[in-house]
């Protein structure tokens, strides 16, 4: 393993992570809900209760780049994948997060914070699958 120290951004990673944690705490203590993005979105699609707060949370996420740009230029968002890959990946992420009842936020942040063994298993599984996929794509297929 070689660590790319030039790409390593520990301060913004920790600070950004703390904001994500804070947002999850706010949704818990005020709304009594778990900040799991796939769950919030899936609930909207399925007509679950709480359309108001779900929509507000999603609008907040979508508006974040606009709010950011009031103060500073946006950080780089570089998307290498082509359209067929993006569509296949999107379908997998959408279907998989609903089947597995969560994603990086619901299982990875909130679930681990609840000390849920189920979320720990889910997090280990999707992390392992993510590492394995990038290994196959970049090093075995060398795309």
């Amino acid at each position: 393993m070689t660590i790319d120290w030039t790409a390593f951004t520990p301060v913004t990673a920790l600070a950004g992570g703390a904001l994500i944690g804070l947002a999850s705490v706010l949704l818990l203590i005020f709304n009594g809900r778990i900040a799991g993005i796939s769950g919030v979105l899936g609930g909207l699609l399925e007509g679950s209760s709480g359309i108001g707060w779900r929509l507000a949370f999603i609008i907040g996420l979508l508006a974040a780049p606009l709010a950011w740009q009031l103060f500073a230029p946006l950080p780089p968002i570089k998307i290498e994948a082509g359209y067929p890959t993006l569509i296949a990946a999107g379908l997998l992420v959408g279907f998989g997060t609903r089947l597995g009842s969560g994603c990086t936020s619901g299982h990875g942040v909130c679930g681990l914070s609840r000390l849920s063994p189920r979320s720990l298993v889910a997090t280990l599984v999707f992390m392992a699958a993510g590492f394995a996929t990038v290994y196959v794509v970049r090093h075995l297929l060398a795309v």
């Binding site: 296949a88 998989g96 089947l99 889910a122 599984v125 999707f126 699958a129």
Partner: peptide
């Protein structure tokens, strides 16, 4: 579900 999500994420 976790496997599918992880593959799409990767």
């Amino acid at each position: 579900g976790g496997l599918m999500f992880g593959i799409g994420w990767g």
